[in-house]
């Protein structure tokens, strides 16, 4: 049993960003463990050739390429069949999986089948005294748990956006095509439709994010936030109450369950600061909080706090930004 194996998804036709982040993680483990990095590339269509080249560019030697028409967005059952097939054959010591929509289902299920150690939603990977050590957020980001891998193999899932996309480190690699039989009739779940929402939102990549919470009182408040975001060149998100209430789409949600953001500037408007939300924003470089309640927990993590009614503060901010841009 040897090697680090990255499950690299190209289920949308091109290599996902979180797959690249995993390779960065694999390279951090590679040196101290003295192990090779290989990847299982899963997807369908001509995009896989480019994806394999991307993997070599980032330092992956061997790419096991599975091209199958069922390896498409959200089709976890097919991904599990293909991933399990390659991992059983290559017997890696560590399997890295992105904790995205498919990976969240894949990692525990693969670990179960391989009788592997399992840690999910990791935000840091490392090696200490020859053992793999991972860290993960617990208790709504109030604490970090450190876990040591004691048995092999190990399946580790990594939270998207927790690791940086690595610098290129090209290797002359090989691609091995692996044919996997996936019996469509045997798959217990089938994706019937992919509904894309707000693809242009770009919450996770925006350098400035404005978040709205229950304190906005209704969907109308978000129009004001959108105006501020437009002036600042940022994106708008929300905490859980507005998405639960249906004021804004669910995929606007920032927090433990929603998106994790690490912008240069995060402005939290009418957000009390539930742990659920805080867990997704602590990586922001500067946090500004606007809230009527001076006791709101959001102020305990904010670098700058404004106690006031957002209906007064936000228009004033918009006016000021316009004035500065005009000057």
């Amino acid at each position: 049993m040897a090697g680090i194996c990255v499950i690299a998804g190209a289920l949308d036709g091109k290599l996902s960003r979180s797959s690249l982040e995993l390779i960065g993680g694999a390279r951090m483990l590679q040196g101290p463990l003295g192990q090779e990095v290989a990847a299982v590339l899963l997807g369908h269509g001509p995009g896989l050739a480019e994806a394999a080249a991307d993997l070599h560019r980032d330092g992956v030697g061997t790419v096991y390429r599975c091209d199958h028409p069922l390896l498409t967005a959200g089709q976890t059952d097919a991904v599990l069949v293909a991933g399990e097939h390659v991992v059983r054959r290559t017997r890696p010591e560590v399997v890295l999986i992105a904790a995205d929509t498919v990976g969240r289902e894949l990692a525990p299920r693969l670990a179960y089948r391989l009788r592997a150690a399992l840690a999910t939603e990791c935000v840091e990977l490392g090696v200490e005294d020859g053992a793999i050590v991972v860290r993960r957020q617990v208790y709504g980001g109030r604490a970090l748990a450190t876990l040591v891998v004691r048995t092999q193999p190990a399946v580790l899932s990594v939270k998207p956006h927790a690791l940086d996309v690595p610098q290129p480190a090209p290797v002359a690699g090989t691609v091995e095509d692996v044919s996997v039989a996936i019996d469509v009739g045997a798959l217990p779940t089938r994706v019937r439709e992919v509904l894309r929402e707000q693809a242009e939102l770009g919450l996770e990549d925006a350098q400035i994010v404005i978040g709205g919470g229950r304190g906005l009182g209704g969907p109308d408040g978000f129009a004001l936030l959108a105006e501020l975001a437009k002036q600042l060149g940022g994106a708008v998100g929300a905490s859980r109450p507005p998405t639960d209430a249906g004021w804004v789409p669910v995929n606007w949600q920032i927090g433990q369950t929603g998106k994790t953001i690490r912008p240069a500037l995060y402005i939290a408007v009418g957000i009390s600061g539930a742990t659920q939300h805080i867990a997704g924003v602590t990586g922001s470089r500067t946090i500004v909080a606007i809230n009527r309640d001076p006791e709101a927990p959001i102020f305990s993590i904010a670098h700058l706090g404004i106690v006031g009614d957002y209906r007064e503060v936000v228009p004033a901010l918009i006016a000021k930004v316009k004035e500065l841009k005009g000057a």
């Binding site: 967005a73 509904l195 894309r196 929402e197």
Partner: peptide, 10 residues
């Protein structure tokens, strides 16, 4: 709930 929006599954 999916990264890109929603998936409808059978």
């Amino acid at each position: 709930m999916a990264d890109e929006g929603f998936h409808q599954l059978e």
